[in-house]
Simulated assay, not measured.
Amino acid sequence: MASLLGNLFILSAPSGAGKSSLIKALLEKHDDSSTYPMQVSVSHTTRAPRPGEVDGVHYHFVSREQFEALIEQGVFFEYAEVFGNYYGTSRVTIEQTLHRGIDVFLDIDWQGARQVKAALPDACGIFILPPSASVLRERLTRRGQDAGEVIDSRMREAVSEMSHFDEFDYVLINDNFATALNELEAIVVAQRQRTMKQQMRHQNLIKDLLEQ
């Protein structure tokens, strides 16, 4: 894949660790930024919408048959099956957005992250951990969306998910939300200042400076 002006950030975490809330807060904080625009990728999924979720905003909700047809067409940049449902990201949409210099955030699990890294090694992987297992269970329970046996299943899955933390470039502990948000922002800013990105972004300036 050719060099891309925008940065691709992969955020993974066990359910309830707060990755979606952190991404949402970061985008809201920089909503009026024209220098470094950013957006979250809208994935496809076969799971049913949760209360308050809107098709095309939170996810593209499709049937299992539709999703499998898209797999056959090679539409997805990555896809995975989690808790019996498919999740996938449009490859074409991601590439077009990055080419326009817009940073993209992917909220996906470790399986999807591994696929993206294989296709785009420069993608920045960030894994978010809860401060403790008890806090994670409390957060899942507080949602009030799942029965006790579902929460038990999610806790077991969390252990499997968290065992892949060392495949990522950065690890954040989401204990204090404001602190975790500041740390996420610091990673984003650092990625933007990498030599390759700055050379692409400011090629005319660098050319002028070196011709003095």
Rank of each mutant, 00 (worst) to 15 (best):
G6D: 12
N7E: 10
P14R: 04
I23A: 09
K29W: 09
D32V: 12
S34A: 01
P37F: 10
V42I: 15
H44L: 06
H44D: 14
T45R: 05
R47H: 05
V57Y: 14
V57S: 15
V57G: 11
V57H: 14
H58S: 12
H60A: 01
V62D: 12
E65P: 09
A69R: 15
L70Y: 15
L70A: 11
E72I: 12
Q73D: 07
F77E: 06
E78T: 14
E78Y: 07
T89W: 04
S90E: 14
T93F: 08
E95T: 13
T97H: 09
V104K: 11
D107A: 07
I108L: 07
W110M: 05
Q111L: 00
A113T: 04
A113N: 02
R114C: 00
A118L: 01
L120E: 11
P121N: 13
P121V: 15
P131K: 09
S132W: 03
V135N: 10
V135E: 12
R137F: 01
R137G: 00
T141M: 00
G144A: 04
Q145M: 00
G148D: 14
E157M: 05
A158G: 08
V159D: 02
S163Q: 02
F165Q: 03
F168M: 00
F168W: 08
D169N: 12
L172C: 01
A178W: 03
T179L: 04
A186G: 01
I187H: 03
R192A: 03
Q199A: 07
N204I: 14
N204Q: 10
L205I: 10
I206N: 11
K207F: 07
L210T: 11
